[in-house]
Design a protein around this nucleic acid. Structure first.
Lengths: 235, 235
DNA sequence: TCATTTCTTAACGTGCTTTTAACGAGAAAT
DNA sequence: ATTTCTCGTTAAAAGCACGTTAAGAAATGA
C-alpha cells in the first residue's frame, strides 16, 4: 500500500461533514468536501477521486443526477447516504449505479467497512471472470466455482441451478448490496417483471441449506426494501 | 472390436500418405486420411479422432488455419509435420495449440513415439488423483488409458468406443462438472446439436456397466440442468 | 453374404425443479 | 394504534430434465 486513497464527501450539513472529514482523515484517506451538487460535480471531475460519499439530500440538485452524471464517464465507487425517510431513493440510486448505501444515522465502523469494501471491489474487479475462478470462502461456507459446488463445513451442499446462480452472483459481489431487480435480471433475464416472489422462495430454500439458523442468517443478509448482501470473504 | 485409437492423417503427397497409413495401421491404429484442408476439417469434425497428424503444407489452405479451427472446439492432440525447416512455423503452430512438431524427414520410430506421448498426455495429463501414470482410480473403478480399458474390482468392463470416450473425458476432469454441451462437442464434434438424448442413453449404458446401483451412482453424478461430474478420489 | 455389435432415435414415466399461491410475522408508514 | 407493506415460509401445482427401455439403422467382423 502506497498512496492514500482519495475520497470526496458530498454533504450539505456542516456538522456531519466535519465529522466525516475527521473520520476519514484519521483513517489515512485524502479527503475533499463539497456542500452542493454543482461543487460536487466539479470536484469529482477535476480530482477523479477513488471514492465518492454522496448525501442524496442536496440543496441545489437531486443527488441521483450526480450519480447519473458521474456514471456517464466513470465507474468510481459511489456510496450513497440517505435519510431514513427517503428509502426509495436508495434503491433508485443503486440501480443507477451506486455501489452501496448507508442510512442515517450510521456508525463510523460500518462506514469505514463499506468504504474499504467498495475500494477493494473497484481495484480488483476489473476482470470479472476472475471472480468466478477459484473459490470463495466465508466462515464455514465455501463456493468452488470450478467444480460448481458449495460446501458447508467441508460437506457438499446440493443446490439447484437457480439456487447456485443466486449464491454465485451474491458471492461475486460479496459485501455489496444487490437489488432484487438487479439479481432477477441477472438470473431470469431482462424480461422478468418486478415481482420478486420467486427470489424470496429461492432465498428461503438457499438459507435452509446453507445457514445454520435460517432465521438469523450468517451468510446472506436481507436489506429490507432494497435487496440481499452476502457476507464478505475474510482474507 | 478392440478399442483402437483413431488418427487422422492430413498430407497432400500420396507417397508419404500411404506410408504413414501403413505405419499406423500396422501399429494398431484406426486411420483416416485427408489430402487437403477442407477435407481434413470435415473429417475431423465428423470422426472426432484421438489424434491429428497434420502436414502444414497443404494445397488449399494454410495448415495453421486448421489448428485454429480445431482448437476452437476441441483439444484433440495435433502433431504438426512440415518440410519447411523454419523455426517460425514451428513456434506459430505450437502457439496456436499444436502439441508437437516433426520435421521431414523423420523415422517411423520417432513418429510412433511422439504419437504415443501425445495420446498419453491427452488422456490424463493434469490430474492429481492418479496413483500411477496412465491410470485413473476412484473407489473400485480403474481406468487404464494405455490399454483403453476400464476395470471394476479388477475385472475388465467392456465399454464401447463412445462409452469409453465419455468415461475418459469425465475422469480427465474428475471433480468438475462438464456441461452436456462441452461433452458432446468433445465426443461427437462441433456440429452436434444441443439435443443431449444421445448422451443420456450412453450414460444409462455406462452406469449399468460400471455402477453397482445405477440409480444411485457412486462414480458419475448428474448435476441437473448442467452436466455430469465424475467422483474424485478422496485423499 | 449373414450375424453381431454399436449407434441413434423414439417414447414414456418418474422425480426434481421451478413457479405460483396463500398466510403470518414484523417492520415501516400514517 | 392501526394500517400497509415487505419478507419468509410452507404447500401445492405446473413444468421439465433425466433415466430407462426398446426398436430401427448403421457399422463391423466373419
Amino acid at each position: 500500500m502506497s498512496n492514500k486513497h482519495t475520497i470526496i464527501v458530498v454533504e450539505d450539513e456542516n456538522s456531519i461533514l466535519n465529522i466525516l472529514e475527521m473520520v476519514f482523515k484519521s483513517s489515512g484517506y485524502q479527503v475533499y468536501t463539497a456542500k452542493n451538487g454543482k461543487e460536487a460535480l466539479m470536484m469529482i471531475s477535476s480530482y477523479c477521486p477513488d471514492l465518492i460519499l454522496l448525501d442524496l439530500g442536496l440543496p441545489d440538485m437531486d443527488g441521483l443526477k450526480i450519480i447519473q452524471s458521474v456514471r456517464s464517464w466513470s465507474s468510481i465507487p459511489i456510496i450513497v447516504v440517505s435519510a431514513r425517510n427517503h428509502e426509495k431513493d436508495k434503491v433508485t440510486a443503486l440501480d443507477l449505479g451506486a455501489d452501496d448505501y448507508l442510512t442515517k444515522p450510521f456508525g463510523t465502523a460500518e462506514l469505514l467497512a463499506r468504504v474499504r469494501t467498495a475500494l477493494r471491489h473497484a481495484s480488483g474487479d476489473n476482470d470479472k471472470n476472475k471472480a468466478y475462478e477459484g473459490t470463495f470462502k466465508v466462515g464455514a461456507l465455501t463456493i468452488d466455482y470450478d467444480k460448481r459446488q458449495v460446501f458447508k463445513n467441508g460437506e457438499n451442499v446440493h443446490l439447484t441451478q437457480n439456487e447456485y446462480k443466486i449464491v454465485a452472483l451474491l458471492s461475486k459481489y460479496s459485501g455489496k448490496v444487490l437489488t432484487y431487480d438487479f439479481m432477477m435480471k441477472q438470473i431470469w433475464g431482462p424480461n422478468i417483471g418486478s415481482d420478486n416472489r420467486i427470489l424470496r422462495v429461492n432465498m428461503a430454500n438457499i438459507r435452509r441449506k446453507i445457514e445454520t439458523q435460517p432465521a438469523d442468517p450468517a451468510y446472506i443478509f436481507t436489506e429490507i426494501g432494497v435487496g440481499y448482501r452476502m457476507a464478505e470473504e475474510k482474507g
